[in-house]
Amino acid sequence: MNKDTIIRLERIVKNFPVGTGYFTALNNITLKFEKGEFAGLVGPSGSGKTTLLNIIGSLDTPTEGKASIMDKSLIGLSHKESAQLRSKHIGFIFQTYNLLPVYTVYENVEFTLLLQKVPLSERRKAVMEALEWVGLTDKVNSKPSMLSGGESQRVAIARSMVKKPEVVLADEPTANLDSVNSHHILQTMKKLNEELKVTFIFATHDEKVMQYLSRIISLADGKIVGDTINPNHGSNAQ
C-alpha cells in the first residue's frame, strides 16, 4: 500500500430502498486519494457525488465494499467512532456556509476545538491562526449575519481547518458565491492545501472550481466515467 494513500474505496455500492426495490446511487466505485490531493467529484445531479462524500465523511456507510480513511476502516463504525473521526480528522465545507448564527466568527471557528476539549490557550492560538489563513482576523467578534457570503464561506473554511484535519470535504462550496468571491475562496483553499498538505475533495459541477482541481473524477449514474489529472489546474484561474 502506498504510504501516502489517505482514502481507499474498494468496490463501493450504495443502494437506497425505493418502494419494494432499491435505487443504486453508487455502483462498484473503486478510488484512492493521496495525501495533499486537491480533487473533485464532478457530474450532474443524481450522479452520486454527495453520496460518495457522505461515505468518505463517515456520515453514511456503503451497502457493499470497503472504505477506509488513514487506514481506519469506515465499515461498522459506531455513531460515537464516526463522530470522533469527523471531529478530529475530517473538515466539512457546505454550500450554504452553515455557521451557527448566535455565535461570533471566533466562536464558530472555536466550536470543533471545544468538542475536542483543547485547552483555552491552544484554542485561542489555533483559532486566530485559522482566521489569519482566511484573512478574517478583523472580524473575530462579528456575527454571521454581519458577514458577506464570501466572508461567511471563509469562516466556514477556517472552521474546517482549525483542527488541522487530514481531509476536507466540500460540497458545492462556491454555489452561492459570485465569481470574484468564488475565486477568492478557491485560492484560499488551494493555498491551505499546498501549505498544510490537507487533502481537499470537492463535489461540484462548477466550472470555476474545476479550474483549480488537480484531479477530476467524473461520475454518472453512480459510476466513475472518468478520472483524470488536470495538468493546467490553477494556471488559468481568474
Partner: peptide, 13 residues
C-alpha cells in the same frame, strides 16, 4: 439546522 451542523462537525448525538 444547528443540530445538523453540530453532528456533521463531529459532535456526538
Amino acid at each position: 439546522n444547528e443540530y445538523g451542523i453540530r453532528l456533521a462537525l463531529g459532535e456526538e448525538k
